[in-house]
Amino acid sequence: MIGNLPFVACMVLIALGLWTLVFKRNLIKLVIGIGLIESGVNLFLVALGYVRGGVPPIYTYAPAGAPMVLPTPQALTLTSIVIGLATTALMLAFAVVIYRHKGTLDARKIRDLRG
């Protein structure tokens, strides 16, 4: 239980993002919630590849004999971070457009397809 505390922390982060998505109405807050979920998933992926007592998978002045952390989750998390950033920029652009057209950021009030 206590050994899995990093995983639990990642899941708490994801759950906070889900809470934001379910119970908040402001579009900016929804974007922040999606960002929280992204951060939680990225942290979880990196934490999955951790080896106890491991050093980063970089040989420049690496301590001899220490095990190395798995490199593949880190490389793919790098991809995931950039894609998350791109989607965040796109979502914020949509929020700007919605605010211009509707005059509000409340997700309840912009649910109709009029206008």
Partner: peptide, 9 residues
């Protein structure tokens, strides 16, 4: 080429 193992870079 680089040597195998930890090196200064």
């Amino acid at each position: 080429p680089v040597p195998y193992g930890p090196n200064p870079g």
